[in-house]
Design a protein around this nucleic acid. Structure first.
Length: 261
DNA sequence: ATGGTCGTCCTACGA
């Protein structure tokens, strides 16, 4: 059995202490981070190594984006892909010794206006997810786990108000269609919803709310998917809402799952 | 309808 976690950390350098606290308290075998906002050689790894996370596979750039996989199990680098040819550090893959491949993804947020004719970023987001669909269609994933900040909340219970979110980037029908097509092309199973099928579920709350907890206008943007062949090994999914209340928090909280593999 | 908050790095820009 192993556990995997995904967390958009919104600067790993600023929140090194929060990552260390999470690793001490939850001790996942693998932690996938997004929005590290750091070149790989400036990620503060010493504290993570001291906690047992001695294996690291990462891609980074200065100031923006960046994905990292920290593991206390041995992993090897399984490459990356420049989805939508943006030149951004938004994907990296690693392989465990049991043959499981882990994809760590950070899908573009897509800007404020859900119209690619006036907002280039929205088009890039759709193109990114369409390329995910094409890649999974051409080469159907096996013994694979895909995690990350997909920046899309697909279900009605993945947002605080389905009706009020229909024209808000992250929950528009065209984005949801793209994401579900990518999921279907790879025969990916949404592990979090397999484990917790009913009810509101959020992994992100805006910094702009006066009282994020009271307003509770959240969205489930962070996901753990498993390929069909290993989906029945997944269990014990959790979303750690309390992390949003930590000092100087990320606007995202960790999502976890366990696999009997 | 609007403005609200962060992080990075220099002044906006992306989220």
């Amino acid at each position: 059995m192993f556990t995997i976690a995904t967390w958009n950390i919104n600067s790993v350098r600023l929140r090194e202490g929060l990552v260390a606290r999470f690793l001490r308290e939850e001790a996942p075998d693998v932690l996938c981070l997004q929005e590290c906002k750091s070149p790989v050689d400036k990620i503060p790894l010493d504290q993570f190594r001291a906690l047992g996370y001695t294996h690291v596979v990462a891609r980074g750039q200065k100031g923006y984006n960046g994905v990292a996989i920290l593991s206390r199990l041995p992993i090897t680098d399984a490459g990356d892909r420049d989805y939508a040819s943006l030149g951004h550090a938004r994907h990296v893959a690693a392989r465990l010794e049991n043959g499981v491949t882990i994809h760590n993804m950070y899908v573009p947020a897509g800007g404020d206006t859900p119209d690619r004719t006036v907002n280039e970023k929205f088009g890039q987001k759709l193109d990114f997810v369409a390329e995910m669909r094409d890649v999974f269609h051409a080469d159907r994933p096996e013994r694979s786990i895909l995690v990350g900040d997909l920046n899309i909340a697909p279900g009605e219970d993945d947002v605080w108000s389905h009706k009020q979110m229909l024209k808000i980037v992250s929950h528009t029908p065209v984005e949801v269609d793209h994401l579900l097509s990518a999921q279907d092309a790879g025969k990916w199973v949404d592990v979090t919803r397999q484990d917790i099928p009913a009810g509101l579920l959020y992994s992100w709350w805006s910094y702009r709310a006066k009282d994020w907890h009271a307003a509770d206008k959240g969205r489930r943007l962070d996901h753990i998917w498993a390929s069909q062949d290993i989906a029945n090994a997944a269990h014990a999914s959790r979303i750690l809402r309390p992390c949003r209340g930590w000092d100087q928090p990320s606007d995202h909280v960790p999502v976890l799952a366990s696999f009997d593999l």
